[in-house]
Design a protein around this nucleic acid. Structure first.
Lengths: 234, 234
DNA sequence: GCAAAAGTGTTTGCGCTACACCCATGA
DNA sequence: TCATGGGTGTAGCGCAAACACTTTTGC
């Protein structure tokens, strides 16, 4: 037992994992079906309590690894949710993070863990049909707004793609996330002009049409350019 | 006494109050000299513990009112700081907020309160000379980055000005916050084109040169335009 | 009349947009 | 040979940047 002079809230971390499904050109998030109450049977973002000697982001990464087996993702703090009644068990403040991965690269890493009866990737378009636990609907809304806002001004779209990708995939990703269509020629010109994507001597395989050239994001160049005052923008 | 099966962190809120000092064309933040340990004598952002039945933002506004007498400010969540050793008293997680005010409008509201031996507005340029408590140096850094980033894409600059202001003040504010000079004619054209600032039939008073026309930010029009897909940008 | 800041237009060039066809590949 | 997506160039327009002088006011 731990005793304190004043009452204290519990603190948890929750992770919104966005994954880009290249095959279906679809943005998905990872949900876990809650095995226990509260909200047993509802879907929730992976998360859990913060250890006392553990940094917040460390906690988020640990929970993620425990519940899904995924590690070493791009991850940023999203928002802290602290409405007094957001958890029926009592005062629970949740520090939410969001992460970006390529589905192809990570889907196979997923494993069900102790307190997860089931795990699924859900298209963000179909999310409204699911019942989410706690205030996770609100969390989702904030996460999507953040992703949409951030993708324009920072090259985080690449985090959703495999290391090597054709430019068409990048374009479709942007079109889906931003909810608009983009002109193919203009898009390519813009992206290539930045010098942030390097053409490789590799091509798509096993496609029943002309194979597209593959590119990769050049993080080193990006960081170099940022130092010189470069601002990424789509 | 309150007892729990597992240990729990304390949760605090801290507020970075940015104020625009029109007279000196200077961006300032509010600091409170700590009267008690830890960090007695150091300067810190106003803040305190979150009550158990209180929303996070409500807590931030309450602490602000208690310590400075200011209320009803523009305020947004900034970041949550949770490094295990950021507070020598134990595990304390701090949800930081930032607020924007006009110094002329609020400076007189400031009052010293119970746990504040002293209170001062410090120019952000002089902050490096002061010793800040806890991890508030880091908090300050993040707050400035946020302000600089956000001021370009959202009309929050107006929150730093009095209700009625000359365009030259707005320009100087942007120049200071963004750290660049702007062309007067281009700036005026750009601002006026958006229709977000309304010219008033009022003019500066008590200036020893031609009096500038005053303008005000038109929040209603802004919200209307946002609904139509308008994106503010400087 | 002088100091100090307010206010005002035009030109130029770059960047963004719009737009359609041929190519390579596998089935 | 057909279907599928890959890949490419140009013209025109609008917007942003560069730039300097006159006006008003108080002292």
């Amino acid at each position: 037992m731990y005793s304190y002079e004043y009452p204290r809230p519990s603190v948890t971390v929750d992770c919104v994992i966005f994954a880009w499904d290249s095959e279906n050109s679809d943005l998905k998030v990872l949900l876990i079906e809650r095995a226990h109450n509260p909200f047993a049977g509802s879907w929730a973002f992976p998360g859990g309590f913060v250890d006392m000697d553990e940094d917040l982001e460390t906690a988020a990464r640990r929970e993620l690894e425990e519940e899904t087996g995924m590690n070493d993702l791009f991850m940023e703090q999203l928002f802290t949710f602290g409405a007094p009644n957001r958890d029926p068990r009592g005062r629970v403040i949740s520090v939410a993070y969001y992460a970006l991965v390529s589905l192809a690269h990570h889907a196979d890493q997923i494993k069900a863990a102790s307190d997860a009866a089931d795990t699924q990737w859900v298209s963000v378009k179909e999310l409204s049909e699911l019942e989410l636990a706690f205030d996770h609907k609100e969390v989702m809304k904030i996460a999507l707004e953040r992703l949409r806002g951030k993708v324009r001004y920072q090259p985080i779209g690449f985090e959703l793609l495999p290391e090597k990708f054709p430019l068409s995939q990048l374009q479709i990703l942007y079109e889906q996330v931003l909810g608009m269509t983009l002109d193919k020629r203009n898009f390519r010109r813009k992206i290539l002009k930045t010098k942030l994507v390097l053409p490789l001597d590799e091509y798509q395989q096993n496609v029943s049409h002309r194979a597209a050239q593959l590119y990769k994001f050049d993080k080193d160049t990006y960081e170099q350019l940022v130092k010189e005052g470069f601002v990424f923008e789509i």
